[in-house]
Amino acid sequence: MRFTLRIWRQRDRDDTGAMVSYPVDHVSPDMSFLEMLDVLNEELVRRGEEPVAFDHDCREGICGACGMMINGMAHGPQRATTACQLSMRHFADGDTITVEPWRARPFGVIKDLVVDRSAFDRIIASGGYVSVPAGSAPDAHALPVSTSSAEASFEAAVCIGCGACVAACPNGSAMLFTAAKATHLGLLPQGQPERYVRAAEMVRTHDELGFGGCTSMGECTAVCPKSIPLDVISRLNRDLLHGQP
């Protein structure tokens, strides 16, 4: 297979950046999207050109490092799939594919397709945890958890923090990410003592960091590689309202 890639190239944070086209040849349909970029990069290095920078690590859809807009869709056209697991068999031979970095003010572009997502870490640091110092826990069976709570909590806990929700949201909101964490902990008995403070603090940090507000567009959940449901946002809002004096 062969493709034409239109890729956003930006030298560093201060560069204005531009779209550049590259042909890639000899792509096997079994390759992942990132393996195709590897092929392009090796070629660029050989030619003495600057390879395309992109974040990636585990290449099995769990670390959340990779992420880019592929033809205007976060992580590309395949539902519930990260860019690293997106296989080229989903594209037609000869396609032109546009590749851009996540766009949001709190996610500054570092280089090409690499963006700074440390804002997510700040949201977690402001409350996305259960305070329990090592060694202080009671026996694991001291608190039974119904399977339904455990399942619902798990559904939210699978968030990989990739940032696709922000990239896709027309408002540039990180509500799905924030709510997924708050819901994961808020649905478990262990998360109860800090539940309302957690929700309030995380949302306060979210807003301070410059993310947009949620207007229930549902783009986030549509592109989420882990299919986190929009309901986590309802749960977060409930905790927020409850926490208000």
């Binding site: 945890y129 259960v130 329990v132 090592a134 060694g135 202080s136 826990a137 009671p138 026996d139 694991a140 608190l143 039974p144 958890v145 119904s146 399977t147 455990a150 909590s153 798990f154 806990a157 994961h184 902990l185 478990l188 262990q190 998360g191």
Partner: peptide, 14 residues
């Protein structure tokens, strides 16, 4: 296991 459960790790339940 005790510690991780207390942290809110959603282990599989019966």
């Amino acid at each position: 296991i005790d510690h991780c459960v207390a942290q809110g790790v959603p282990f599989a339940r019966e």
